[in-house]
Deep mutational scan, measured.
Amino acid sequence: VTTYKLVINGKTLKGETTTKAVDAETAEKAFKQYANDNGVDAVWTYDDATKTFTVTEMV
Rank of each mutant, 00 (worst) to 15 (best):
A21C: 07
A35Q: 04
K29H: 07
V55N: 01
T18E: 10
W44P: 01
D47E: 04
G15H: 15
G15N: 08
A42D: 06
L6Y: 01
Y4W: 04
A42R: 05
K20R: 11
T17C: 15
G15C: 15
A30P: 01
G10W: 14
T56K: 04
Q33D: 06
F53Y: 06
T18C: 13
Y4F: 10
A42W: 15
N38S: 10
V1H: 11
W44V: 02
K51F: 08
V1R: 05
L13A: 05
N36C: 12
L13Q: 08
A49D: 10
T3L: 11
V40Q: 06
F53H: 01
M58Y: 12
Q33P: 02
I8W: 14
T45R: 06
N38V: 15
V43H: 10
F53C: 01
M58H: 12
T45E: 11
V40D: 04
T56V: 08
V59S: 11
A30S: 08
K29T: 06
T26Q: 10
T52G: 00
V7N: 03
K5N: 05
V1D: 09
D37T: 12
T18S: 09
F31E: 00
V1Q: 10
A21L: 02
D48I: 06
T17N: 05
E28W: 15
T3S: 05
D41P: 09
T56H: 08
T26V: 04
K51D: 01
D23H: 03
V43T: 10
N36T: 14
D23V: 02
D41H: 11
V22T: 12
Y34I: 09
E57S: 05
A27S: 01
D37C: 14
V43G: 04
V55W: 06
N38H: 14
Y34A: 03
L6P: 01
L6T: 01
E16Q: 08
A35N: 04
Q33E: 09
A35Y: 15
T56M: 07
T17L: 14
V43Y: 10
D23L: 03
V22G: 07
V7S: 03
T12A: 09
G15S: 13
D37F: 15
A30H: 13
T45L: 07
T19H: 08
F53S: 00
T56P: 02
W44G: 00
T52R: 01
M58A: 10
G15V: 15
D37Q: 14
A35I: 15
Y4E: 01
M58K: 10
T2Q: 11
T54F: 11
K51E: 02
A35W: 14
T54L: 05
G15W: 15
Y4N: 02
V22R: 10
T26R: 05
T19R: 04
Y46A: 00
Q33N: 07
A30V: 15
T18G: 02
G15D: 11
A27T: 00
F53L: 02
Y34P: 01
V1P: 07
K51S: 03
W44S: 00
V55P: 01
D37N: 10
T2M: 11
T52N: 00
T50G: 02
D23N: 10
F31A: 01
E28Y: 15
K11L: 15
V1W: 12
K11P: 14
T17V: 10
Q33K: 12
T56N: 06
V55Y: 07
V43C: 11
D48P: 11
E57V: 05
A42Q: 09
K11R: 12
Q33H: 07
G10K: 08
G39W: 15
K29N: 06
V40R: 06
V40H: 05
A21M: 02
Y34T: 03
D47G: 01
N36L: 15
V22I: 12
V7Y: 07
T56L: 07
A49E: 10
Q33G: 05
V22P: 14
T50F: 03
A30Q: 09
K20D: 11
E16H: 09
E16Y: 13
T2V: 12
K5L: 07
T12L: 12
V43Q: 10
K20V: 13
K29G: 04
A24S: 08
D47R: 00
T18A: 05
V43M: 09
F31K: 00
T56Q: 08
T45W: 06
Y4L: 01
